[in-house]
Amino acid sequence: MTCLPASTEKKLGLVIDLDTCVGCQACVTSCKEWNTGGHMAPLTDIDPYGGQVDGVWFNRVHAYEHTTEAGGRTVHFPRSCLHCETPACVTVCPTGASYKRTSDGIVLVDEDKCIGCKLCSWACPYGAREFDTDVGVMKKCTLCVDRIYNDNIAPEDRVPACVAACPTSARHFGDLGDPDSAISQLVAERGGVDLMPELGYRPTNKYLPPRARTERAATVPAPALEAVKVEGGFLGWVDRMLSA
């Protein structure tokens, strides 16, 4: 199982728009909520009401300040499994518990096989694997595999929980292996990037970088204002306008 498929039929994944994400945590809690009763249930919380609270989460949102010569900006950064094409998290797994699906490219853990050696979490550069100390197995984002094909929920709801919830529409979902898919086009249009490309994991998920300020449609080409040049100044101008 832990040998990677030579290729997958689809490359399902997420695209996250850092230009739009406001860091609201909706994707974080909606993910927790769906998944704690879902395929990898439960997402255990230890000391949930105490000082050392520590739970299993598949998606976590960081906040950064990015300072360049052009100025500074605050960037909210959701982080979850990127469903990499050549992920060592899978190949290091000694038991076959970790695997990449041939059909859709989703990287999953088979909890029944997992011995909890944690090696996959060491092998994931992105910190996408979460160990559940209570049950002693590794858990991770399932790309909501129990939602996206689920015949028991409304067809329109068959997208990852985090994508459905995101109030700013900063999250996208689809087949990144199909260059014609809407999501691939979005990535192309917006110059989506890989995280840590130098490590060679070839993440499927892409991040859309915040648009440089000058490239945004948002710059308004406004000429500087000039005081009205009419006798009587502004009030004179008003009179003139009204009698025109």
């Binding site: 850092l18 520590d54 960081h62 906040a63 950064y64 990015h66 300072t67 010569e69 992105y126 995280l195």
Partner: peptide, 23 residues
């Protein structure tokens, strides 16, 4: 490279959770 934010400096200002987690 971890965030895809090119150039300049990137500083962490808030963690996703205030207490330490498995990672």
């Amino acid at each position: 490279s971890a965030t895809g934010l090119a150039g300049g400096t990137v500083r962490s200002i808030e963690w996703p959770h205030t207490e330490e987690n498995y990672l």
